Simulated scan of single mutants.
Amino acid sequence: MAAARAEMVRLSADAGKPIYKPFFDYMRRSLLDMENRYLFSDLIEYLFPGGFALYDVDSIAFDKESREPVAAFELKRKSWRVAQRAWENGMIEVNGYQFLRLKRLSRRFSVPLFYFIWAGEKFAVFKVDDVWADLERKYEGTSAEDLYAVIPLESVQVAEDFTELRRIMEGVLGR
């Protein structure tokens, strides 16, 4: 950690404040955002003990011209090591409970809700309402044990480079 910090300081000294200041401003905002979410969650639990569970949708894309929302996203980043076995078997695995919650939420949204999964150098994008998943309890006895939504890769759009990803996202975002 100290070596990384020393390298950052050395690079910052060479590049100047325009390089490192935006990074630290972003990190402060990110930490404040995490704290606000925690405090709000804690407040809801205090006001209504055991009454609610809070979840988030990670990103919502708005058209700059019309200012209308065009798509909402649940973002997942997985190492290729974690995703590889399922992917090679023609499947993608996401948390089953979250998948079910997002299906319910998607039915109430007037904006389409997508999963955006980044696994190594591959991307998978799918509209939550458009896919069917088998729910399976997996990885018993490990820290990864949970209910998984197992989704066939053939039901999702897959990109292995940014050119393919741009084509997929153009369709998703209506461009």
Rank of each mutant, 00 (worst) to 15 (best):
A6D: 10
R10V: 12
A15Y: 00
P22A: 13
F24E: 09
Y26M: 11
D33K: 15
M34G: 07
N36G: 00
N36Q: 11
R37K: 15
R37E: 10
S41C: 00
I44H: 02
L47N: 08
P49V: 07
P49H: 13
G50K: 13
G51W: 03
A61V: 15
F62T: 00
A72K: 06
R77N: 15
R81L: 03
V82C: 04
A83K: 02
R85F: 02
E88S: 11
N95S: 15
N95F: 00
L100N: 02
L100K: 10
K103H: 09
R107H: 13
S110T: 14
V111K: 01
F114R: 03
W118K: 15
A119T: 00
K122E: 13
F123D: 07
A124K: 03
A124T: 06
V125S: 08
V125L: 09
F126M: 10
K127F: 04
D129S: 14
L135D: 05
Y139E: 10
E140Q: 05
S143A: 11
S143Q: 09
A144N: 07
D146M: 14
P152K: 03
E154M: 05
S155T: 13
V156A: 07
V156T: 07
Q157F: 04
V158G: 01
D161K: 08
F162C: 02
E164L: 04
R166V: 10
E170Q: 07
